[in-house]
Nucleic acid binder design. Structure first.
Lengths: 131, 131
DNA sequence: GGGTGACATCGACAGACGTCGATTGCCCGA
DNA sequence: TCGGGCAATCGACGTCTGTCGATGTCACCC
């Protein structure tokens, strides 16, 4: 389940780049895409992604994120779980602390699906070789 | 309200490209971005965008969209309204029919915000000159 | 071994969302 | 002028979602 999002470029069977505006989306593909988009379509989760990415070493623990968000610890933990389940964040438990980091290329492949241009900005890593 | 999304690149005061992973998102910016993402974070609306884009001349009326979606006419009309309000679609009423078309550059600027790369694919049109 | 602190999970609640049938408004052709 | 048909709006319903306090779990330190 943790690699859910990374399945997009390959599961869209051939339509690797910019599939949204090239041909009508099938119901199943739309459901999958919507599931990932719903994960980031929340102010708290967008700020979490932003905070984690901007944190030193590109990783942060819950204690770093609770205060700047102004939300309770269970709520932050819940949002982080949603992002991890969507394949956008990784959880690395080291001792008592849990460190979260962006999955390389996850946001880029999402951006590539939305982009109407033929090329893609998702050239960083973790993408299908056919791209 | 129809230009809601187009306000992003300029309203993110300076952080025109890829602002999400560069610095922590402010609460107001996150709310605005989430509002637009919620508009497309739905299977029916994703398919609507796809159907409109793939239709001939890049525009389609409600009667073209109801059947392939398998939803009632009021529901389709509701989803289209959400997309228009989010600045992703334009409504052009000609006679009895209402034709919907993609706003050029809207999806691209959204993709640019999500992209972790420094550059942007949103070069088609309707973007801020500072990009 | 017991205490402490960080994080996850649970249960509950209010609010938002997607969907539909019924209705209304409106343009066009007869 | 009137009827037919397309699309928007309304009201209602069930479901999903975000949030919290309380509780559970586990690793570290004394």
């Amino acid at each position: 389940m943790s690699t859910e999002l990374l399945a997009y470029p390959s599961s869209v069977d051939g339509a690797c780049c910019a599939p949204l505006v090239r041909q009508p989306l099938a119901a199943a593909e739309a459901t999958d895409l919507a599931r990932t988009l719903k994960a980031i379509a929340d102010p708290a989760r967008l700020r979490l992604l932003s905070l984690v990415a901007a944190h030193e070493n590109g990783e942060a623990c819950v204690c770093d994120l609770t205060e700047p968000l102004g939300l309770s610890q269970p709520t932050v933990s819940h949002h982080l779980k949603v992002l991890v389940d969507a394949g956008l964040l990784t959880r690395d438990k080291r001792g008592v602390w849990a460190y979260f980091a962006l999955v390389p290329g996850a946001l880029d492949s999402l951006a590539a699906v939305l982009s109407t241009a033929g090329d893609t900005t998702a050239r960083s890593s973790a993408l299908t070789p056919s791209c």
